[in-house]
Design a protein around this nucleic acid. Structure first.
Lengths: 163, 163
DNA sequence: AGCCTGACTTGCCATTCGTATAGTCAGGTG
DNA sequence: CACCTGACTATACGAATGGCAAGTCAGGCT
């Protein structure tokens, strides 16, 4: 029983009483953006990429794979495929973020932050994000509604109120 | 060219100048925890699960799949396989979080939060997390080192300083 | 009318992810 | 010493993921 497994202990260490297999939001989220290419396409969308070929090129996957994943992301509601026209060009379609897609940003940044910390090579992380207003580097943090930073061992899990 | 693609614009909208394909931390992170089962196993680890069979049962995957993923997570450094002994029981092994694994928590919670918001069913999310000290619900947020909340449109990406 | 380009689609193949079923192995208990 | 249990391993198979190469299609340009 050693030490140091800290999280979520008191109310939920007997996890066997609440089988959340299929209802778990992490599981559901992973079904939507749980492939490398899907999350990378979302990264490109965050960077402002909108055109099909750019998605495929920048993510580094084939057009076939990009087409399939983009369609799934559109179907799931993270991206919207809308027509647009550049002057002197014919009408094309662009993929742009929906609110649902935009709200995935914290998850993407959290993964990036973790990868920066543990998976980067000698050169360090390829990019850093800063706050436009003050120039300070940004980070993903866990906080409560009262504004406290919440370390892992201060987290408690419970059932939501019905209503 | 429509509106609303906000993020990371000024310094990086010409994304084609910095090919980060293989160095991207999101991509690297997804290679490690980019399968549904891997992330779900980490979820269980956060909940305090430590025994092999419990991992397989609670995640809802076969023992074969659990064995393979757990071995990968150990090799990658997110979990550690250590011997332990319960009184009157023989020596067994448990999988416990390393610091690297623990630091994945924000990413897992960000996914959970996103899933709660967009993928939950009529019953709503199965669990909510609260701050042990004050009881307030917790959330994953993007903030800068100066303590400001950073909305997506105030993010800027840049190359890190060398040295 | 024919060409070109961006945006896909189609076919085939390799790898990975996951399932189901059936072993194996170590060590404590009766 | 035979049995049981927890923790795996082995084999076989199906489904999803992704690559490569080639084909399609619409519409503006010459």
């Amino acid at each position: 029983m050693s030490t140091g497994h800290a999280a979520f202990e008191p109310p939920l260490s007997d996890r066997s009483t609440w089988q959340a297999h299929d209802r778990c939001s992490i599981g559901r989220a992973m079904q939507v953006v749980g492939s490398r290419s899907a999350m990378l396409l979302m990264r490109e969308a965050f960077y402002g990429t909108r055109r099909f070929d750019d998605f495929a090129d920048r993510v580094g996957i084939t057009e076939a794979a990009a087409a399939k994943r983009l369609r799934e992301l559109v179907d799931a509601g993270l991206l919207e495929r809308t027509p647009y026209r550049e002057p002197g060009q014919r009408t094309r379609h662009e993929y742009q973020l929906t609110p649902m897609g935009r709200d995935l940003l914290p998850a993407a940044l959290a993964l990036m932050q973790w990868g920066d910390g543990y998976l980067a090579d000698d050169e360090g992380p390829p990019i850093v994000l800063r706050h436009a207003d003050c120039g300070a580097p940004v980070a993903v943090e866990i906080r409560c509604a009262e504004g406290h930073d919440v370390p892992m061992h201060e987290l408690r899990a419970g059932r939501p109120r019905r209503g």
